[in-house]
């Protein structure tokens, strides 16, 4: 993965190694905020924003502090710290600088504070030994993949809401079944890159 081109990294993160559907990260917001396409899109935007920022920040923290002092085993806890404070910081700044954007993303930001998809991304970036441009490409790709998955899923859920689902399957059971079918469908992208 070290020498992969930017394009390959982006396509791989969106389709082949989709964070939700093949890495199974970020399932909580995937099921929780996918009742309406509008909110799913808002969540996707917020995740994109935070993932990109967090990817870059954790990379810098890792390179400058953890690697230098040979304490790489503290990655997980350090990254949680970075991500949580970053999201808080972004929320505060956004509220002041752009109230319109805050209105659109505001409710979703605290939800992402401890999201495993963001932490997983930060850890994977280090695992794959990416450099900074690759980190940015991977973060944006992963976030777009998340957005794609959650928006598609929200569309499916809006339809199933109206269809005649057998009573025991109503609500979350049918949502989980359609999610699993989506994951199987995304398996078809294996071997693309």
């Amino acid at each position: 993965m070290e020498n992969a081109s930017i394009f390959v990294i982006v396509v791989s993160a969106i389709l082949v190694n989709n964070f939700v559907l093949s890495r199974f990260l970020g399932i909580c917001p995937f099921l929780g905020v996918s009742k309406k396409v509008d909110t799913a899109l808002g969540m996707g935007m917020a995740v994109t924003f935070v993932m990109t920022m967090a990817g870059i920040m954790t990379y810098i923290v890792n390179e400058l502090i953890l690697v230098r002092f040979h304490i790489e085993y503290l990655q997980t806890i350090a990254f949680i710290l970075v991500i949580a404070s970053l999201v808080q910081f972004v929320e505060i700044v956004l509220q002041k600088v752009s109230p319109a954007l805050y209105q659109a993303l505001g409710v979703f930001l605290p939800l992402i504070t401890t999201n495993c998809a963001v932490l997983g991304l930060a850890l994977l970036n280090i695992q794959f030994k990416f450099n900074l441009p690759q980190v940015i490409a991977h973060s944006v790709g992963a976030a777009l993949g998340f957005t794609l998955a959650i928006v598609l899923f929200a569309g499916i859920r809006e339809k199933t809401e109206l269809s005649d689902v057998p009573k025991p399957f109503k609500g979350f059971p049918i949502a989980l079944i359609s999610a699993s079918m989506m994951a199987m469908a995304f398996l078809g992208f294996t071997g693309l890159v």
């Binding site: 923290v61 502090i65 953890l66 002092f69 040979h70 304490i71 503290l74 806890i77 710290l81 970075v82």
Partner: peptide
């Protein structure tokens, strides 16, 4: 090292 850097970060 770990205490100082993590504490410093925090």
């Amino acid at each position: 090292n770990s205490v100082v850097s993590l504490g410093g970060l925090g």
